[in-house]
Design a protein around this nucleic acid. Sequence first.
DNA 1: CTCGCCACCTGGGGGC
DNA 2: TGCCCCCAGGTGGCGA
Length: 269
Amino acid sequence: MPELPEIEVTRRGIAPLLTGRVISGVAVREPRLRWRVPDAVLGLAGLAIRGVRRRGKYLLLDCSDGHLILHLGMSGSLRVIASETPPQKHDHFDLVVGERTLRLRDPRRFGAVLWTAERVEAHPLLVGLGLEPLSRALNGRRLHALTRAHQSPIKQVLMDGRRIVGVGNIYASESLFRAGIHPRTPARRLSLERCAKLAAAIKDTLRDAIRAGGSSLRNFVNSDGRPGYFQNRTRVYDRAGAPCRRCGTAIRRILQGQRSTFYCPRCQR
DNA sequence: CTCGCCACCTGGGGGC
DNA sequence: TGCCCCCAGGTGGCGA
């Protein structure tokens, strides 16, 4: 389920329950995630959790002696539950904090649980990541600059984590609709003005999605913690053939880099 | 460097 | 019911 808004909603949900607490136990039921869960993770009991940060789609649990790096892949979710709750199928990893447990469920196992004792920003998976879209670093000028070398379609550049992090398949389509830009436009052909519009559209799209997901935060401690776009009406994503909410024209679906893209042929040029 | 494509996995839905 | 095919929100890694 996770793009940046889902990860951020998750972070906000789990942070208050973990920050300042001491890890009392760890369970690894299935170590074969995207990368094998390192044995070091089994020895984390006794460490204090100092904070929970997000970098792109990675969640970083800053501990007293290193950093736990979590990624939810395509199908992962995290929940804080009562520690005695029996695990279900696909519940691969637990971080026990007294009477509460942070539990990772990930049917497809594209997610990751990693540990580093070094500076986490220098971790190989994080070191090459691009701009945080909700930070001031992303603006029209920066977007214009970082698209200059790319002949490829803007949709695919938006999803390239080495340029901008956190914009996945759904929100790439949604952002381009808001900006009125055709997803096949070669990135380098976008004017500064259109880049400014797109940068603003990305921020608006992600912020709205976080706000929509945030309304389910209160459920995070219990069973039904599904945040995100289930309650978020998309404007184009997964709406092929349905009328554009702005002009009524049928939404189209195309393939770009083996992924579905949705757009309005009239509103997006 | 960029680009295009494959791979990793499981499950759900539709057609027959 | 069962089987088979297609699709799915991510992203590292490969060769060109």
